[in-house]
Structure formats: structure tokens, C-alpha cells
Amino acid sequence: MSRRPGLSPALGFGLLAAAGVAVPVLTRDSYYLDVATTLLMNLVLTLSLRLEMSTGQLNMAHISFMGVGAYASALLVTRAGWSFWGSLAVAPLVAALVAVPVGRIALRVSGPYYFLITFAFLEVLRLFFNNFFVDYLGGPSGLVEIPRPHPLPLSGGAIGFAGKLPQYWLMYALFLLAAAVLIRLEYSRFGLVASAIRQRDLLAETLGVDIIRYKLGVFVLGSFFAGLVGVFFAHSHQVLHSSDFGLEPMVLLVVFTVIGGAQSVWGPVVGTLVLAVTSELLRELHHYEILVYGAVLMVVMLVCPEGLVSLPGRIAHALTRRRDAKAAAVGARVAP
């Protein structure tokens, strides 16, 4: 594709990968490792949510597919006796499979109707986790005693995943996989087509894109990555509640993504990082966290509606304009 301004994909990915390695070098404190692990989970969730938003649709049920992956993996491991590693490969596919009929129904409409349908699905699935198959899904008291990831057998030993550090590395590996795929797609023709659909879906369609099929593909892929995070979440938290996959965490994902900027693949990265740091700095104010997010969201929407990631470009633009204005003023003075 033609060159776009901003971070080159390889450099951006390299920075993220390096930052991920730096965390355990800088600290072994289990609290901070926990924070960093959660951050990586959120990054995969917001990056995949943004993939879906790049065609112009906000899927409010994104986190439900994390739930599908999480519950599916918990059941495969505790009930069917699967190894965590088998489940890690299969449970995200279950989430993707569930996404096919849901997407087929939801994508018949667009705009606010799509938002409402996916929102309804979010609630339906949350209630399903909460009230149905209580013996299997744990009901309102949650699904408990989910085992940690099993040791990974290697030639001459095995890597255990009981501690925070190996769990961090596992999530880091999953994050690298997801980020590589999602960044790569953004800078390929897929990203270009997504932006075409977002800008003018009718024109894209008359130029030959099967937009329903394309949107469905994006929906299923996004759900796959949400399911992948779900598997990790289930086995690192070891407890699942239906509320983990409800409106509040979903709204947070949207806030992270929108504050960073949904137009760019780097937007969710910036938004998730900035808000993770903010929330750490304001740890004392824990109960007001959501208020702070709300305030930040309002300020960002007023100051730069395309998200924080658009800020450097806007500043540069403003500076050039000022310089041009100055030059024009000088020119006017010189002119007879």
C-alpha cells in the first residue's frame, strides 16, 4: 500500500516486543507482573476490537467471545480432561465458531442497530453464563477450581506455570502472536479494504467487495483473539464469573480503544497503555476509577476526537500553519 504517515509497522511492533521483555527485567514484583499481564490481555482485546471497528462497526459483544473461550477452556480441561495446551488451541476456535452465526445475524444491520443487537447478545450471553447449566458453568457463585496452565513438557524437563513470571511470559507470547497478525493485516490490503468499507460501504460494494463476507471474516477473527485471551484468563484467574464478561469491562475496552483512537492500529495500544498507567497512578482513588476514565474520555473527545494517537499529527499541523501564517505576514509586509 502507499506509504502512510506515522509509525512504521516493524518499528512499532519491535518497540512493543522490547517493552514486553523489559518488564520482567525491571521488576519481579508479583504485583507489577500482575498489572503487566492484565495489560497484555487488554491489549489483545482492544487490538482485536479495533480490527472490528476498522470496518466502521462497534461490536458490544466482543468481550462475550472472551467469555466463550474462557468457559469452553475451563470445561474442556476440568470436564473432558484435556490438557491446557490442547484447550489453548481449540477453545479460541470455539469462540470463532460461535461468532459465525452471531455475526451473520448482527451484520444484517449496521450503525446503531448493530450496536444494539450486539449489546443484546452481550447481555444474553452473560445471563446464560449466570443462569443456565449451573452444574457446568457455576451459576451466580462462579466457576471455580480451574487449574493453572499445565507444565509444558520439553526435551529434558518441563516449564511450570504456577508462578506469576512464567504466566507473564505465556501471555506475552500470545500477545506477540496477536499483535503480529493484527498489525500485519492493518498494513496489508485488508487494512485498506477495511478503511474503504468504513468510508463508503456502497462504493466498496460496487467496486467488488463482498462487504458482508468481509465484515463476517473480521468479526470471526476478532472473536478468535478474544477467545484466546479468555483461555488465558480462565487458567490464570482460576475463577470465572459471568460479570467478568458483562457491560462494565466491555465499556472499559471501548474507552481504551476510543481514547487511543480507533482509526489507527496504534490507537488501542496507546489508549490501553495510557489508561493502565493512569489507573496505577490513581490507585488510591480505586472507587472513582470509572469516573476518571469518563472524564478522560470527555476531554479526549473534545480536544482530539480521533484519539490520542492523532495528537502528534495535529500539533505538527498547527505548527506548520502558524509558520505559514507568519511567512504570509512577512510576505505581506515585503509586498508593495
Partner: peptide, 9 residues
């Protein structure tokens, strides 16, 4: 990009 889109869509 507009033309590339039309070429590739």
C-alpha cells in the same frame, strides 16, 4: 490508494 482499492477489491 483509491485506485489500488478499485484494482484489488
Amino acid at each position: 490508494d483509491n485506485v489500488l482499492l478499485a484494482l484489488q477489491l
